[in-house]
Design a binder for these strands. Structure first.
Lengths: 126, 126
DNA sequence: CCGTATCCCTTACGATACTG
DNA sequence: CAGTATCGTAAGGGATACGG
């Protein structure tokens, strides 16, 4: 940026800021990736639960509900006993998994940089 | 992922998960980008404050302190009156601005997808 | 200008127990 | 299996006033 550039970045409703804020929810991005990583783009509740060590059933359900409201995933209930519920990325979800995968790949390829970080930077919650 | 793939992703200390969790702090990524976007890679407190509409002085200072502890930024005090304090990306900060820029660019280029999202997805906090 | 110091409230999140 | 229902805590974060 040149010296004279106006300081008006990060308007509260600008697109980049909204993307960043998507990640302020702890589990959303990890759920998106997990669904994306599966061969059929879908996963049942239990599979997601086992894929995300540390998540409680409460948070998993709650986050999935929010993602459904947001249009990122769809929910399909199989009427059998015991019940089987499947979650699947929507087309919108497929769009949003793109930036998630960018971050995922960066993390995978830069573990050393992460190790150099003071612990507190990545352990605020959890 | 093939059907037989083990479900063991997202270990609690794996690199990708730690990257994701970096973004769970509201302002860190925006500060990183703002510093990166400036021609000299540095900015004073007041500049950052004006660049981030909505942030309080308290949160700005607090976040900068945490980033300093984490080794992402360095802090330089000019002993003048009124005081002038400058923040600058460290080499480690330069590394971490990479994924931030990836997200920033994605947001800039996909504003339409963001508009398609239900509002609540990006307005949990703030 | 660059902070600190309080005060206060909301929420995110986890633990646990219970249900069809 | 896939949820609800409660309860509880800690952290995030804003508002405001004051200080060097």
């Amino acid at each position: 940026m040149r010296p004279g550039t106006p300081e008006q970045e990060w308007r509260e409703d600008c697109a980049p800021r909204r993307v960043m804020e998507l990640f302020t929810t702890k589990w959303t991005s990890m759920i998106l990736h997990t669904l994306h990583a599966r061969h059929d783009g879908a996963a049942r509740h239990g599979v997601l639960h086992r894929s995300l060590p540390g998540i409680s059933k409460k948070m998993l359900t709650q986050t999935l509900r929010e993602m459904e409201e947001s249009g990122l995933v769809s929910r399909h209930v199989e009427q059998v006993v015991p019940p089987a519920v499947e979650y699947r990325l929507t087309p919108l979800g497929e769009r949003f998994v793109e930036p998630v995968e960018l971050l995922y790949a960066w993390g995978r390829d830069n573990a050393d940089a992460l190790d150099a970080l003071t612990p507190r930077a990545t352990s605020r919650r959890g």
